[in-house]
Design a protein around this nucleic acid. Structure first.
Length: 271
DNA sequence: ACTTCGACCTGTTGGC
DNA sequence: TGCCAACAGGTCGAAG
């Protein structure tokens, strides 16, 4: 579910409620995510101040007095702010209670997400240290993509989803960006001109920004921090539109599988 | 060094 | 209506 816009939406939604607040209590109801949630948090986090919330790729970083919580939402995760008392549902695996009577609740049915703790510089953590560029920064340029792909043979779509190249673009926004840029998802990445890469850069930035403005995409279970869904799904041009007419040329949208993931594209508009 | 593929989970959907 | 296979927003780590 959560790609960069959903993670950014989550960050913005929870930030004002819990920044600078003191942890009262930690509840771990199901420890078994992608990696086990450290049980030591139950004793170590209470009385610590949450100084700062940030994002790197699809990871949220919550910085406390003695270390940092690294949170990944996996495929089906979401987080929300809830007032106490609140009811607990089946997949509410982790909850951080703060002194003002609110909590941050982590929900993840498929448990592909992660909640980890590090006392070192978070960007040096093994899961973060080799991540690629942030697409919404000035470092993300046509020249960067061109040079990243020069010695590679993969198709452009899986390249866009390679977190060592760039972070935050997942299966939905990869298809959407390629449609806007007019690039076929199976085109080899080393066979794309600088001009076309520039168009792709612009498309990715535009798609991600608009998705953030819409509160992300909710196809199934993504919710913002206040529990509401995201509204970007109504702006999707190709994703999930197999056999439906292209909004641009009316030709039916095609679905294929690449790297075991569904790709959607218009065969007339994308070459 | 690059690419592909299995694995991790639960819930929903579509075809028979 | 019911069952079961296929599929779903991610990505690590092993194998090729």
């Amino acid at each position: 579910m959560p790609e960069l816009p959903e993670v950014e939406t989550t960050l913005r939604g929870i930030q004002a409620h819990i920044s600078q607040q003191i942890v009262q209590r930690v509840e771990i109801r199901c420890q078994q995510l992608r990696w086990p949630i450290p049980l030591s948090l139950i004793n170590s986090l209470p009385n610590q101040c949450l100084h700062k919330l940030s994002r790197r790729g699809k990871y949220l970083i919550l910085s406390f007095d003695t270390g940092h919580l690294l949170i990944h939402l996996g495929m089906s995760g979401s987080m929300r702010i809830v007032k106490q008392p609140s009811t607990t549902n089946k997949h509410d695996h982790f909850e951080l209670f703060f002194h003002p009577g609110i909590s941050l609740k982590y929900t993840d049915p498929r448990r592909f997400g992660a909640i980890l703790w590090t006392e070192d510089e978070p960007l040096k953590h093994r899961l973060l240290c080799s991540l690629g560029v942030e697409p919404l920064t000035s470092n993300f340029t046509a020249n960067y993509l061109k040079s990243s792909s020069i010695h590679r043979s993969v198709a452009i779509k899986p390249l866009l989803m390679d977190s060592k190249v760039l972070v935050g673009v997942g299966n939905i926004y990869a298809s959407e960006s390629l449609f806007l840029a007019g690039i076929h998802p199976t085109r080899r990445c080393n066979n794309i001109s600088l001009i076309r890469y520039q168009r792709l850069i612009d498309s990715i930035k535009e798609v991600l920004k608009k998705a953030i403005q819409s509160g992300g995409t909710s196809l199934k279970d993504f919710t913002q921090a206040d529990g509401k869904p995201g509204y970007f799904a109504q702006n999707l041009n190709v994703y999930g539109r197999n056999n439906e007419p292209c909004y641009n040329c009316k030709h039916p949208i095609i679905k294929i599988v690449q790297s075991q993931r569904a790709s959607f594209y218009c065969p007339k508009c994308q070459t």
